[in-house]
Design a protein around this nucleic acid. Structure first.
Ligand code: SF4
Ligand code: SF4
Lengths: 164, 164
DNA sequence: CTTATTGCGGACATTCAATATCTTTAATGA
DNA sequence: TCATTAAAGATATTGAATGTCCGCAATAAG
């Protein structure tokens, strides 16, 4: 019951890509260096995001990634699911079918209350993540972080981004 | 991001213990047989529940487990946390501290917005599980399951329960 | 008292997923 | 052409989840 830390990486990377000037791209190398994480491994996470249609990769020199859609249309849930998959956190193995008092021909209708409650909790979790977009995140960060830090980060990223 | 299947076992076992006449106990052996799961492994889950103070074990012949509290005072969340632990699903590794533009002496206040959103989702998940008690589960099951099945299960369990 | 039964706790083996790295290929701009 | 980059896949490494085992202490029944 633990999210992979790739989720954290992905969220931070998307946050940076959201702050890029429109059309600009940033390479895996720069993103890995910025966060201090192994580049080949971060690359896997970015590929998952690309396959999910959240970001776009471009080959060649001055290639890199950029958001495939406006930041306001990308939610925390989409990013999380791109990394973790869409499986529900509670897996139902139907152990009630093993009950010794259950007759072979007897029908059991749908999922039982145990599974329904667990799935309801899962849905509540998803609802919160679905309600938060990358644009919301950027707005909060800009309001909270010190100006110098934002400026320096922008300069650092700007020096390494390319394309249009 | 997947709950252990011990959680499912624990929920079902608690559900059965909740249906026992007051004071009666049921052994690990019977619970394992009923659900068709390996007894030594189920034993681990039941021990976790006992350590969390949700059920009580009694030694000796005719020993076994019973609820330590009324079913109405035991929530899904307590059972889940007894197995899974109380750690939050999103672990913050503070990767923002690796940012190259961050000066050594610079303070970063508390958790950032990324972590706050993830934890908020986690809390929504917990809120649903906290709101459901074992008594609620029993009530729903009694209303939904066919009468014959309930009677047979009660008879099967009754023949193997003991004490008072 | 003796004996069988049961939960308790720890040690241990096994299996599988998460983590991390590497290599090759294809695309692209300089 | 040539250097650079993402894409895709193979492959190690690690660690957690799963499953088993054994000795111990408590307890009730004979
Ligand atoms: S939770 Fe309910 S539906 Fe899921 S396996 Fe257990 S009994 Fe079957
Ligand atoms: S989510 Fe925010 S607080 Fe957590 S590690 Fe990343 S930057 Fe730090």
């Amino acid at each position: 019951m633990q999210l992979r830390n790739q989720v954290e990486w992905a969220l931070h990377c998307c946050s940076i890509l959201a702050g890029l000037p429109p059309g600009q791209r940033l390479s895996t190398k720069a993103l890995a260096e910025f966060h201090g994480v192994p580049k080949p491994y971060l690359s896997k996470a970015l590929q998952s995001l690309a396959q999910a249609g959240l970001i776009e990769g471009t080959l060649g020199p001055s290639g890199g990634y950029r958001l495939a859609r406006p930041a306001a249309e990308i939610s925390f849930l989409e990013i999380t699911e791109a990394i973790e998959g869409r499986a529900r956190s509670f897996a139902c193995t139907e152990i009630r079918r093993n009950a010794p008092c259950l007759r072979a021909d007897e029908q059991i209708s749908g999922p039982c209350q145990v599974a329904r409650v667990m799935w309801q909790a899962d849905e509540a979790w998803r609802a919160v993540l679905r309600s938060q977009s990358l644009a919301d995140l950027s707005a909060t960060l800009e309001a909270e972080l010190p100006e110098r830090l934002l400026a320096d980060a922008e300069a650092w990223v700007g020096a390494r981004s390319a394309g249009g």
